[in-house]
Design a protein around this nucleic acid. Structure first.
Length: 358
DNA sequence: AAGACGGGGCA
DNA sequence: TGCCCAGTCTT
């Protein structure tokens, strides 16, 4: 595009954005801390999912120091159900760095932003453009989808090198416009018009510039390879009660999947094909219980794996001691601890099942 | 350069 | 069901 085309492209894009752009809670504020929170929540997560979490989060942690001084469990509880929980842990860690190193004020230099835990190239650019109105293009899925169509770019967007290419391209476009509006306009366009599977090209403000539309090949872009093969993991979920009707629960390790969250004890079953071996292994984990009664099975789907959960009820032997990271807990108290959605379903099932039998 | 990391929405 | 979503960190 020549300079004049770039300017009219931006004019048409921003004109549409000001007419049709979405009104969103984090667009009502100029507080960089709030914008930061929104950007982290929006990673790999759709707008409508984020809105209630955002409102609750800034209410509970209205300032960087409030978040910095909270416990990790409080933060996880507020994030419960949103997924990618390392985002919450990294956000709190990053906020603590800002409180200590930058006097609770988000720095405005790109290099400083990138040094903060949880802030990568996208979030740094989003903050620079939206909060500080610096001409930094925020390279995300929306931008790459829209621009791959406009310019017929067939590089694989799952490759790291491709991000650089879009960055160079968008850097030229954003110089001739209002940085904060440019990035947000492309996000709205990607969400409302230039969607992955279905497009609304007849309503698109930049249709005239779009080479893919001109050739009728919108849906062939962007090019993206690489598919993860879903593994299925089988687990026994143990519903073990004590004499007070409380359940045995355990806290997951501090690293890895669902780190630091709580669950009913889970025992991996895949290594044990034989029922008798399974029983023996479960006993080695929690002690001697009567678990002949299988009550319920449930399949939980993550993006990269599948959990096949089978519930077992049992009474535990009286003299068994609690192990590290284990706790007895009533169903009501569970609402104060962060549980992954898979185990929230288990809690719901247990409550429902209990009511039917009393 | 890949893989890990959640959960919900949608055709 | 499979793919996508305002990505980042780890290996």
């Amino acid at each position: 595009m020549d300079l004049q085309t770039i300017q009219s492209f931006n004019h048409d894009l921003l004109d549409w954005f000001h007419q049709e752009g979405r009104k969103l809670p984090w667009r009502e504020t100029s507080n960089p801390y709030y914008i930061w929170i929104s950007e982290v929540m929006l990673q790999q997560t759709q707008v409508n999912t984020v809105i209630p979490y955002y409102e609750r989060f800034i209410k509970q942690f209205p300032t960087p120091s409030a978040l910095a001084s909270a416990s990790e469990q409080e933060v996880l509880k507020c994030w419960e159900g949103l997924g990618y929980y390392s985002r919450a842990r990294h956000l709190q860690e990053g906020v603590r760095e800002v409180v200590e190193k930058y006097d609770s004020t988000l720095p405005e230099r790109k290099k400083d932003l990138l040094s903060i835990t949880g802030i990568g190239p996208y979030t740094a650019a989003a903050l620079l453009s939206i909060a500080f109105n610096e001409p930094e293009p925020a390279i995300d899925g929306n931008l790459m989808r829209v621009l791959s169509r406009v310019f017929l770019i067939d590089d694989d967007i799952s490759k790291q090198k491709t991000r650089k290419k879009f960055e160079a391209l968008a850097s030229n476009l954003i110089i001739e416009t209002v940085p904060s509006a440019f990035n947000q306009a492309l996000m709205d366009l990607g969400a409302m018009i230039c969607r992955p599977k279905t497009t609304e090209c007849t309503e698109c403000p930049i249709q005239n510039y779009c080479l893919a539309y001109k050739e009728g090949v919108q849906l062939e872009y962007p090019v993206k390879t690489g598919k993860a093969k879903l593994r299925t993991l089988n687990y026994a979920v143990l519903l073990i009660t004590d004499e007070h009707g409380r359940y045995l629960i355990e806290q997951r390790p501090e690293q890895g999947l669902l780190a630091g969250m709580w669950q009913f004890p889970m025992v991996a079953l895949d290594e044990y094909a034989e029922q008798s071996q399974r029983e023996q292994f479960i006993q080695s984990r929690v002690g001697k219980i009567d678990f002949r009664q299988q009550s319920f099975t449930y399949t939980h789907r993550f993006s990269h794996l599948i959990w096949q959960l089978s519930l077992f009820k049992g009474q535990i032997q009286e003299d068994r001691r609690l192990k590290e990271r284990e706790k007895w807990m009533s169903l009501n108290d569970m609402q104060h601890y962060p549980f992954p959605v898979s185990h929230q379903k288990v809690i719901e099932w247990v409550k429902k099942n209990r009511q039917e039998h009393t």
